[in-house]
Simulated scan of single mutants.
Amino acid sequence: MALAQENCIDKAPKLDDVAAEMLSTDLQDWIMVNGTLEKTFRFRNFHETMSFANAVAYIAHQQDHHPSIDLTFGRCKLTWNTHSAGGLSRNDFICAARVDQLKA
């Protein structure tokens, strides 16, 4: 099953480095940095940036898994990690894959 078709689970366990690296190959240009999954999206204007951020908020609410969002005019940086697991879980990759579908 494709990551974007999966749903987040409660108390998802932390992935080891090999499992996280393998899942990262299913994503579009996300990078792993110090136990997080990050990607910066660029837009033509503030309206497009906010529309994207709101779509991400919908995904986060639907999956009950929320990213850190750094938003400025024309740019939205998302950072996923699972605080309760102390690093990356499968939930982070599921949400990142769902976000990738927004820009497809």
Rank of each mutant, 00 (worst) to 15 (best):
N81V: 00
F93Q: 06
V33M: 05
T49K: 03
D100Q: 07
A2N: 12
D26I: 06
C76H: 03
F52G: 00
H65A: 01
D100H: 06
R75I: 09
M22C: 11
H65I: 02
L27N: 05
I9Y: 03
R44T: 12
I31F: 12
R75C: 02
D70E: 15
R90E: 07
T82Y: 00
N91C: 00
P13C: 10
L102N: 11
F52E: 04
W30Y: 11
Q101K: 15
G74V: 07
G35Q: 07
L102M: 13
D17N: 12
S51F: 12
S89A: 05
T40V: 09
T72N: 09
S51W: 11
S84E: 03
A12M: 09
W80F: 15
H65E: 05
K11S: 13
R98T: 10
E6A: 12
F43T: 04
A55P: 06
F46T: 12
D16S: 12
Q62R: 15
M32R: 13
C76D: 08
T40L: 08
Q62G: 09
E38D: 11
T36F: 01
A53G: 10
M50Q: 02
D26F: 09
P13V: 10
V99W: 03
M50N: 12
V99D: 04
N34E: 15
G35M: 09
D100C: 06
A20D: 07
I69D: 08
V33D: 11
I94H: 04
D10A: 14
D64H: 13
L37G: 07
K11L: 12
A55W: 01
W30A: 00
R90T: 05
T82E: 01
I9W: 01
M1S: 11
M1F: 07
N45L: 07
N7L: 09
N54A: 07
